[in-house]
Simulated scan of single mutants.
Amino acid sequence: MFTGIIETLGTITNIKKEKDNIHLTVKSNFTNELKIDQSVAHNGVCLTVVSIKDDTYTVTAIKETLEKTTLKDFEIGNLINLERGMKLGDRLDGHIVQGHVDHKGICSNIKTEEGSTIFTFTYDSKSNNVTIEKGSITINGVSLTVINSKKNEFSVAIIPYTLENTNFKLLKKGDNVNLEFDVIGKYISKLSNF
């Protein structure tokens, strides 16, 4: 379980393909605090630490994860958003995030305003996932508030701190992102389809 509050940016230092899986090696400033079997969200994707060496650690992504997320597009040198699992009893500063990406979205527009940047995203509405005005969405692991909610499109307003301290600062129009829709909204959507 995560909160969507990014702890740090990590750098992909190695990518190794093995059958349908890939092993990602990541350099981060909290590697020395990790342990084998610990969960870490990588651009919103929950992956298990399988090895640790010096200031890097390795995680494995299976075929299903690669098909639903942007992980297969990662390249050596990419900066990724990292968050360790939530500690029971800590404040929930973001929202309830499972680290289970629903599907990819596309950045369709970026607009700079006075004091914020508005990012607009489109997604496949066939999945029955929904956004609501002022509801929560997780984009590349970042907990954000929805504005301009439409059937298969929504926007978020990014404050300068979030822009600088996440990989949103590198996002361009046309880029794919990982989307995890609000878990409560997913349950309501599922129940309303019965």
Rank of each mutant, 00 (worst) to 15 (best):
T131F: 11
I36L: 10
S189Y: 07
F119Y: 15
N167A: 00
R91N: 08
T65H: 04
Q38E: 13
Y161Q: 14
Y123S: 01
N165I: 08
A157K: 05
T117V: 15
L82N: 01
K19G: 08
N81C: 06
G185M: 09
S39C: 12
K87G: 01
K172A: 01
D54M: 01
E164L: 14
L144N: 00
N32H: 12
F154I: 07
G94P: 12
N176G: 00
D93Y: 13
A157R: 06
E18C: 05
I96M: 12
K16R: 12
K35C: 06
V26R: 03
N129T: 03
K150C: 03
L47P: 01
A61V: 13
G44W: 00
C107D: 01
S127L: 12
G135A: 10
K53W: 00
S192V: 10
E18M: 11
S136C: 11
G105E: 11
K35L: 09
G85H: 04
N178S: 06
F121L: 13
G77Y: 13
K104W: 11
L47T: 00
F154A: 03
L24F: 15
I15C: 06
V142D: 04
F74Y: 13
T120V: 10
V183E: 09
C46D: 08
N165C: 13
V146W: 09
H95K: 06
L191M: 13
I159W: 12
K72Q: 12
S125T: 13
N14S: 12
V183P: 04
T120R: 14
L82Q: 01
G174I: 09
N29F: 10
L170Q: 07
I106H: 03
D93Q: 15
N129L: 03
H103P: 00
I188P: 09
G185R: 07
S125K: 14
N193K: 14
D124N: 15
T120H: 05
K134G: 02
N167F: 04
T122P: 02
I80P: 10
H95G: 07
E114V: 14
V59N: 04
L171G: 01
D54G: 05
T8G: 08
L47S: 01
S127V: 01
T138N: 12
N148C: 03
K172W: 02
Q38R: 08
K151C: 11
S136W: 02
G10F: 07
N167G: 03
I110A: 04
K169I: 06
I118Q: 05
N152K: 05
T48Q: 13
I147H: 00
S127P: 00
L171S: 04
F30E: 08
L71W: 02
L191K: 14
L92V: 15
N129D: 09
G77W: 09
G10S: 05
K27Q: 14
A41E: 03
E75G: 06
T58L: 04
I188S: 03
I137H: 06
F181T: 15
